[in-house]
Design a binder for these strands. Sequence first.
DNA 1: GCGACAG
DNA 2: ATCTTGTCGC
Length: 223
Amino acid sequence: MVLDTQSLRQQQTDQASQIILHDEMLHPKWVGGADVGFEQQGTVTRAVIVVLSWPQLELVEYQIARVPTQLPYIPGLLSFREVPGLMAAWGKIQHKPELVLVDGQGIAHPRRFGVACHFGLQANVATIGVAKSRLCGDDVVLGEEPESCCPLMMGENQLGWVLRSKKRCKPLYVSPGHKIGFSSSLTWVKQCLRGYKLPEPTRFADGIASNRTFFKRMNEKIS
DNA sequence: GCGACAG
DNA sequence: ATCTTGTCGC
């Protein structure tokens, strides 16, 4: 396996798929969520893709792929650990969403190529990175009010947004992944919020990937 | 050199 | 990420 974020990022820039989709260009029937969990002391990667209807945000489909874990967790190289499993799950998905929220950073990454970029490029789908903590960028003091938001900056350059999605919760770190810009990333994440810290696609994917009982019982509700 | 460091 | 115990607030 080649761990070269620089050339992957170059691919993303070179390809026609770099086309930035704006809000008015996206009319999704479904929105997706992507996350992974680990089993058996980390030797097995359990990757999950969920599909929710838009704008109802009800679970339509989910697929799980279990693959051997190829790499340990290394900050900055997370995508190489998670993308193989995510691609396996993506291949099983019947209702391909036009937009996927990925658990982790988009371009708010030391090489500007986080897991959301990597997955979006490989799957050729618009993606947004929704991370629960900061990898890089300047620390900011955010207001306590829900929906408080400010740009995530690294010096003069914007990397994404810091968003207080819920009262008394640590903020989300939102950044463009693939084929989407800053403002659209923020508006889509906000539109996917339903009173929880995580936007619904991420929340469902996270719940299933982490084997939470509430989400496990979704099994009979669909398919 | 030291600290920070998605999941 | 995973695991686990305890605590606080709505």
